[in-house]
């Protein structure tokens, strides 16, 4: 009994000092002087712009990666082709890459002196140090989540119902919308939650490709760092609290939606 209490104390203490106290501390510092300073900091034009840009990039990343994720998952589970294992491994690749390396990689291809960047610039399309670069970086880092969540669900539900639908004369799209999609919806939803969390919070990759034009190519995470470097700690903490609240919301959604087999 004693050792059980000791273990509990060590585990809770570790978690408390590493996670809870620091996160709680930021909330405390932010609201120490009441709600108004916080409100003023997050309603500056720069902060609002950063907020909209972050949300927009996240929406694009979620839509693009959900369509890609479902298509790729169907390919990986329902089709047979050489190199399937390799494709599955390559889709997981963004999880193993440092965010800074992601940024560098995008610059090398889409920057003005990059492989495609020069040609794109001639067409008047600027990607790096501009809005599309931020979106590309966000899509890159959040790419694997929908695929990873949908693949096991798709494997689990099997093909009997799809075959039945197709035997009864449903077209492929009808089968997809009426049979496949409803059955994989939990996996898709959970994947979307993870994608959203990653997209809202990405810092390193976006930091490299954004060029940080304040009020134009600054996301919320970049705004936090910018305020910190400008010694505007109140501004940095306020923006952090907004991001932390979004994270807590995500966490709540995660617990609510976690697929049953993972809940254990």
């Amino acid at each position: 009994m004693k050792s059980r209490l000791a273990l509990r104390a060590v585990a809770l203490g570790y978690l408390g000092f590493l996670i809870l106290l620091p996160v709680g501390g930021v909330f405390w510092i932010t609201f120490r002087d009441g709600f108004m300073p916080f409100w003023e900091s997050i309603t500056t034009p720069e902060a609002l712009n950063a907020f909209y840009l972050t949300v927009f990039a996240a929406v694009v990343a979620v839509v693009a990666n959900t369509v890609f994720g479902v298509a790729a998952a169907i390919m990986l589970v329902r089709r047979r082709f050489p190199g399937k294992q390799l494709l599955s491994a390559l889709i997981d690749l963004p999880l193993a890459v440092s965010p800074v390396v992601v940024g560098l990689a995008l610059i090398l291809v889409y920057g003005t002196y990059g492989w495609f960047g020069g040609w794109l610039a001639e067409q008047g399309i600027l990607i790096i140090f501009s809005f599309p670069g931020i979106i590309l970086a966000t899509v890159f880092v959040s790419l694997p989540f929908v695929v990873r969540e949908v693949v096991p669900v798709l494997r689990e539900v099997g093909t009997e119902q799809e075959q039945a639908a197709s035997t009864l004369g449903a077209s492929s799209w009808q089968t997809f919308w009426r049979v496949t999609l409803p059955s994989i919806r939990p996996g898709v939803t959970y994947g979307i939650v993870l994608t959203t969390a990653k997209a809202l919070g990405e810092f390193g990759a976006v930091s490299v490709v954004s060029g940080r034009i304040i009020g134009r190519t600054e996301t919320l995470t970049l705004h936090v760092e910018d305020r910190f470097q400008a010694f505007d700690l109140a501004g940095a903490y306020a923006a952090s609290v907004v991001l932390a609240v979004l994270a807590l919301g995500t966490l709540f959604a995660m617990n609510l939606l976690k697929p049953k087999e993972e809940k254990a």
Partner: peptide, 15 residues
């Protein structure tokens, strides 16, 4: 336990 997954890394650093 899942909070570090959800919290943006720059916020983790600042906290």
């Amino acid at each position: 336990i899942d909070l570090p997954f959800a919290l943006p890394t720059i916020v983790a650093g600042l906290t």
